[in-house]
Design a binder for these strands. Sequence first.
RNA 1: GGUCUCAUCGUCUAACGGUUAGGACGCCAGGUUCUCAUCCUGGCAAUCCGGGUUCGAUUCCCGGUGAGAUCACCA
Length: 481
Amino acid sequence: MTSIRTRFAPSPTGYMHVGGVRTALFAWLLARQSPDGKFILRLEDTDQKREVAGSAEHLIESLHALGIVYDEGPDIGGPYAPYKQSERLDSYRKWAQKLIDAGRAYADPYTAEQIEAFRNQSRDEKRAFLYRDHRPTNPPVWDGKMPLRFKSDPKSYSWHDEVMGDLHSGPEVIDDIIIIKSDGYPTYNFAHIIDDAEMNISHIIRGQEFLSSQPNYMNLYEALNIKAPLFATVPHILGESGNKKLGKRDGAKDVLDYFKDGYLQEAMINFIASMGWNDGSEQEIFSSAELIEKFSLARIQHSGARFDEKRLLWLNGQWIRKLSLDDLYNRCAEFWPESANQVGDDVKKQVLALVQDRLKTLADLPLLTSYFFAEPTPDWTMTTNNNQLSKLSTDEIVTLLNHAKEALSNSNYDADSLQQTLNSLLETTGQKPGILFTLIRIAVSWAPFSPALNETLSTIGRDKVQSRLQNAIQAAESASK
RNA sequence: GGUCUCAUCGUCUAACGGUUAGGACGCCAGGUUCUCAUCCUGGCAAUCCGGGUUCGAUUCCCGGUGAGAUCACCA
């Protein structure tokens, strides 16, 4: 059995969105399942007009960020280099010449206007347009300035797709496609066939949009006498609203933006893999290692999957909670509020431990933690708007705050001691936790929510708690005037 | 319009032709001595329609319908 070699072959025309990532991911998983499998990155840069500067680097950065590591590629080389189509023109020229010599390719003598006229005519007659109906009887010698067309041999095909199963097509879909453009570059339709053959690709994994050109590819494989690889057609990912294929034009997001927004690599991989694939069990959380172990083309869904950001958010939370504190801490470097810079790693780590269960994305960090590092600004309406606290007079609140300040000043500032202090404070004041704890929480954080009170106090520290309680008392007094 | 593909809760999906059609996200309700989150419990919610085959169809077949893709000197 020949070894598994799969490739991801994007064109450098922009960024990667989840649709492209999934194709790459599936190809990568398939290669990694086999001990000697290889995953190849190939740049399909044959359209100079659409090329976007820097996008090749951007694509490579995206794959690195996702942990989808390729074994051969334009920046790292490999046994079948170069991995950039613009550097393989000689090869396409050579194969094209074989077709010309065999009478299976010819120069296209028509102008764009003439072809357009043919098209219009077909449309008026309500027939499908086929270029081969207009094949020139005496085509000129190809001078490299005209497009070179494949002379097709229309016939029916039946073939097997590793995902979709058995597929069929009739001769009416076979046409004389352009294989070399007038600028000398090959079309995708031609170049990928040559490259996949020369690079010994075993499986072509690509999106459904190529299904309708598949018969033309079969026809080319035959004319070139190339043994076709295995095909695996992956359904589309649909946009969040509407049923359209997810695409850049509809605002599909750059995957790197998800990382900037605080999503974890593991969550992205887990999420993208689970759109259109599952292992048949009820497992929801998969690591890359598990995906490699369990992935199979046969269990890929046949219909499109809609992108559900809520589910991604949930998965991200799951993965954040799964990480060890140290691991999580290392990934948070870019997300702390500015005020956190003034404290050491130990303090930040302590704070992180408190909020780990509360993070949906790493970008939630400032919202959840800023009052640990910077003095919060009292906002007295937080007490007056509170259902419980609004029942108390300002005097009563000040009295409670004073009691709290007094009691807390004598506590050992570990979480257990603080809980004891707080519990006895409940008894001495005769208040319910709903009042007392809420008040203290607001007074030291001025935040809508926070972790458990004893741990929050412990982490903030005695001195700051004392001064914040004092500030709260002053805020109460100035509010009552 | 031609061709191809697809069709289970709102979403992602499971179910050798025999299940009260299962799980997850989301949503709702309750619990975990305060908030938020986590966690736990419970609830709502689906086989596109019509035929056929069969003792029995989400599953197989046919026909509709709906959705998507594609018909470029883009990939």
